[in-house]
Design a protein around this nucleic acid. Structure first.
Length: 505
RNA sequence: GGGUCAUUAGCUCAAUGGUAGAGCAGUUGCCUCUUAAGCAAUUGGUUGGAGGUUCGAAUCCUCCAUGACCCA
């Protein structure tokens, strides 16, 4: 609907009529401020012991959004961020003009009220209103609060309405904020510095993913939005920082699903002088801390399934995890051809995979990943799928890498970082070869990163955590869109007579 | 990319080829210590868009748009 069409909307027209009436009476429907004395929740707490029918002479000022009205505006449910407080508007305390003017309000308007505290006979704590101010006139009708607002598309497109009507939505984003704060506090308390690295990059490296491309006019060059922060955070370790992290937005030009949004939030941290064994302990501690921030002492229950967060978490070699589920032991399958045969026998498609390690990884993803309900570290990945990870100290063909799974989903990815500059160069050359051969997700050569490694990066452990997926797990959210306030949506377009496309709401 | 389903009033939903409806919201009035307040009356629609079949289409067909779920 465009604004013009909306002029004809009768519900909006009704509100515009009321707005005009208020203005004609000299009332400013959009004043500048209101001096509140208490939030709703505070009052509920302070007057918890007040018996039904009792009242006090305590004068308070409250404000919030009108969500319901009963008995021709005698009772008004006012909601602020903390909760609900009822207003009691009786003719004993308000002039006839004030009572009449109150009827120019609508559900959705913001109101400030001054009055005394009384608990009604029915037991509802109320502010007995002596005077009120209209703080904002709302022109749009709210969805029915009893039937709810359930249209998924409309909820995402107009998230603010979703938040007004569905309180649990606001609660999810409050929890998200607390999780992120807990993680930052955890890291800050352990000597980490958060350093911001470039979003716009000449080469998008550090992960296997297709980047977004954009253009810098003054330089006349294309730039990519980052798909990871890894290569720059490692440069900081080279530069002398020993503990760094960045918790920020990552962009990947891939499909949209219940688990993928083109922009999402990732934590990456790097700490010098540690390896992946130490990093697993660290990861457990940090995520338990994040969990405690919003559901301390409570088990995580996701769709009826209880997730056991108790430490220590299971650590399982990838080949052993595959053996456990399928009975096939890939330690004895050393050639590409044999691996291909074994995978096909298990019903796993391998047609685009060009080496043994990629096949092992594919078998794991296809058959094992979804079975990992409780937090589990899968360790010791094939070298071919881990171009930035240090070779395993004992096992040939493997690297010192883990991924953390819970509820069948990848939550985190960590490793002993590859700091041998010559080995790293070889690995990136292999990636460049794949890219040249048409693999859109292969990493580009980042010569400056290789140069940095040649100056020397100390032994380092590094971790990436998908914050959105973590919040999904901790808030029992089925879709990533439920934990991203404004998820990416296809714009609605409308063909016009001229063949032009026009955005509508 | 493929499959299945969906899109009707501000919201939640009916109407299976034969006059587009209900509840809530809105408006008007009554009532005045209510909790989804109640009672009465009443307004509100290009049935997502474009074509087609038919005497007749929300309904059947084709295409398009958007979304949800499943699959890759």
């Amino acid at each position: 609907m465009s604004i013009d069409e909306n002029e004809n909307n009768r519900l909006r027209a009704e509100r515009l009529r009321k707005l005009k009436s208020l203005q004609e009476e000299g009332v400013n429907p959009y004043p500048y401020a209101f001096g509140r004395t208490h939030k709703a929740e505070q009052l509920q707490k302070i007057y918890e012991g007040l018996a039904p029918g009792e009242e006090t002479q305590d004068v308070v000022k409250v404000c919030g959004r009108i969500m319901n009205e009963r008995n021709t505006w005698m009772f008004v449910d006012l909601y602020d961020e903390s909760g609900k407080i009822q207003l009691f508007c009786h003719k004993e305390n308000l002039s006839e003009q004030d009572l009449k003017r109150l009827r120019l309000c609508d559900k959705g308007d913001f109101l400030g009220a001054t009055g005394t505290i009384r608990r009604t006979k029915q037991g509802e704590l109320s502010v007995k209103v002596n005077s009120y101010d209209i703080l904002t006139k709302s022109l749009q009708p709210l969805p029915d609060s009893w039937q709810g607002f359930t249209d998924v598309e409309a909820r995402y497109r107009h998230r603010y309405v979703d938040m007004i009507i569905n309180p649990e939505v606001r609660e999810t984003f409050r929890k998200r904020s607390l999780v992120i704060k807990a993680i930052r506090d955890f890291l800050d308390n352990r000597g980490f510095f958060e350093i911001e690295t470039p979003v716009l990059q000449v080469e998008a490296g550090g992960a296997d993913a297709r980047p977004f491309i954009t253009h810098h006019n003054a330089l006349g060059i294309d730039l990519y939005l980052r798909i990871a922060t890894e290569l720059h955070l490692k440069r900081l370790i080279v530069g002398g920082f020993e503990r760094v992290y960045e918790l920020g937005r990552i962009f990947r030009n891939e499909g949209i699903s219940t688990r993928h949004n083109p922009e999402f939030t990732m934590l990456e941290l790097y700490a010098a002088y540690g390896d992946y064994n130490e990093l697993m302990d660290f990861t457990e501690e940090m995520l338990v801390c994040a969990h405690d921030a919003i559901c301390s002492g409570m088990p995580v229950v996701f769709e009826g399934k209880e997730i056991n967060f108790a430490r220590p978490w299971k650590r399982l070699r990838m080949v052993d995890a595959i053996k456990g589920v399928t009975g096939v032991d890939f330690t004895n399958i050393t050639t590409y051809e044999d691996a291909k045969v074994a995978a096909l026998k298990l019903g796993v498609e391998v047609k685009d995979l060009e080496n043994r390690g990629a096949i092992v990884n594919e078998v794991f993803e296809a058959l094992v990943e979804h079975t990992l309900l409780h937090p589990t570290f899968i360790i010791d990945y094939p070298v071919e799928v881990s171009p930035l990870t240090k070779a395993h100290r004992k096992n040939t063909g493997e690297v010192e890498r883990f991924e953390l799974f819970a509820l069948g989903r990848e939550l985190a990815n960590g490793y002993s970082e590859l700091n041998d500059p010559l080995d790293q160069r070889k690995r990136l050359e292999e990636q460049a070869r794949k890219k040249a051969a048409g693999d859109l997700e292969a990493m580009p050569m980042d010569q400056d990163f290789l140069l940095a490694l040649e100056y020397g990066m100390p032994p380092t452990m590094g971790l990436g955590v998908g914050i959105d997926r973590l919040v999904m797990l901790l808030t029992n959210s089925i879709s990533i869109r439920d934990v991203i306030a404004f998820p990416t949506m296809k714009p609605l377009v409308q063909e016009t007579k001229e063949g032009r496309q026009e955005t509508r709401l």
